[in-house]
Design a protein around this nucleic acid. Structure first.
Lengths: 236, 236
DNA sequence: GTGCATATTGCACTGAGTGCAACAAGTCAA
DNA sequence: TTGACTTGTTGCACTCAGTGCAATATGCAC
């Protein structure tokens, strides 16, 4: 019976992959905004392997159900059942229901920080930020991003959480920039740059999701151009 | 007994006013992000007057308890009891617990929009935005803002909601700007300006709350200067 | 007053999230 | 392999936010 349960979980998983034409959701998780555990360094042993498997089962079950039936309509009991764990165990993997989605975005925050450092040669802070974001944006795995974005727009609560993710991005970018310009006197400016750049990202994603014929990177470049034009025109 | 209850409510209210050195929370409410009812036009009659009184009782009870015992620790039963209504009735006034706080901020969104239109002569969009925000910021009723801000920092859930309020501000500012520059081709730029300006506001409020010796307006001016400096230095 | 609209309330319900204590499974050493 | 130790899983009972419904109370207009 337990075996049957596990098997149906695997089947559901395969079915899900096929139906959505994409693979490899979340090979690594950092546990969301304030991670409950550090999962990175110790990656060997049966225990850890099982944990990763469960994590993946939960995530896939959650995303699948969110897409199929909607976020609010999916209960934790549903997810737990589909992932072959108890409801109580769910909370040992995620602090809350929405963290299933947030953890996805958290990966991008990591990328942003890394990409910032790699683009150190781009010039001034805002140029570095722009190039870093462009790089990350080009690395978006298309169907996954759109799926998550679609879910996020379903409920107000999630849109709100999405806003939080942008703050994560901003923080990541800021930290990246700070490591390139370590001087203390520049801090406020870098903070501002991070804010503006993520803002540009936000606006582009918005436009892209509405009438997205062109690739996201195009919209992002335009946003930065707009930004410069508007601020140039300014007085004092 | 019911009278005793009502009287204690009034006493609590007076006590609250005295202890916080300020008055007139929320003379008008719009019901938060998506208001549940339009309370503005019809403002006469016993019924409406009672409604306003209840609204005020709820808000004061809520804020008082949030400050005294913390946001998470305050249950809706507490608030309802303190406001001399039933728990169920609470939901006829606010859609959720956090709306008590959000409704406060919503008032500022209205001010921002109005102030934008009034400052039409300031020059380019970003200048108008800056002047509008400065004006609103100068109108902050000091102890109230700080109190709300302090509560907002207590829980993660509230910080997230606070982020949503910034989006409200951004929207208000954008709408104000759009009424000044009605042309469609400028839209994206105005959106960008609104985003950047509210971002500047956000950063200033943050700094101000941390080491706030100077008035908020000072920080806001600095933020706009920083902004300009950073973007000027940029390449393409 | 009567009739109508709206406000208030209690009740029963769902669903998220927590604390606890029992139990199962992985780990490591002897 | 066995036994001690650690970590993971689970069920249970609980709290609290939020909703739907139906009964009752209140304000309002005639």
């Amino acid at each position: 019976m337990w075996l049957a349960c596990a098997r149906s979980g695997v089947l559901a998983l395969a079915d899900y992959r096929a139906s959505l034409h994409h693979v490899q959701f979340c090979t690594r998780f950092y546990g969301g905004l304030d991670r409950m555990q550090d999962l990175l360094p110790k990656s060997e042993g049966l225990r850890e392997r099982k944990r990763q498997e469960t994590l993946q089962r939960i995530t896939e079950a959650g995303l699948k159900s969110f897409i199929a039936r909607g976020y609010e309509e999916t209960t934790l009991d549903d997810i737990a059942a589909a992932a072959s764990i108890s409801r109580r165990t769910f909370f040992h993997y995620f602090k809350s229901k929405d963290e299933i989605l947030l953890a996805q975005l958290d990966n991008y925050a990591q990328s942003i920080k890394a990409s910032t450092v790699e683009n150190a040669s781009a010039g001034e802070p805002l140029d570095v930020a722009r190039e870093a974001l462009l790089k990350v944006v080009n690395g978006f795995e298309e169907p996954q991003m759109s799926a998550i974005a679609r879910i996020m727009r379903q409920s107000k609560a999630l849109q709100v959480r999405r806003g939080m993710a942008n703050l994560q991005f901003e923080k990541a970018l800021y930290e990246g920039l700070c490591s390139l310009w370590p001087g203390k006197q520049r801090r406020d400016g870098l903070r501002m740059v991070a804010m503006v750049a993520v803002g540009a990202l936000r606006l582009s994603v918005e436009t892209w999701q509405q009438d997205g014929k062109r690739p996201l990177a195009k919209y992002l470049r335009d946003a930065f151009k707009n930004l410069r034009a508007e601020i140039r025109a300014t007085d004092s």
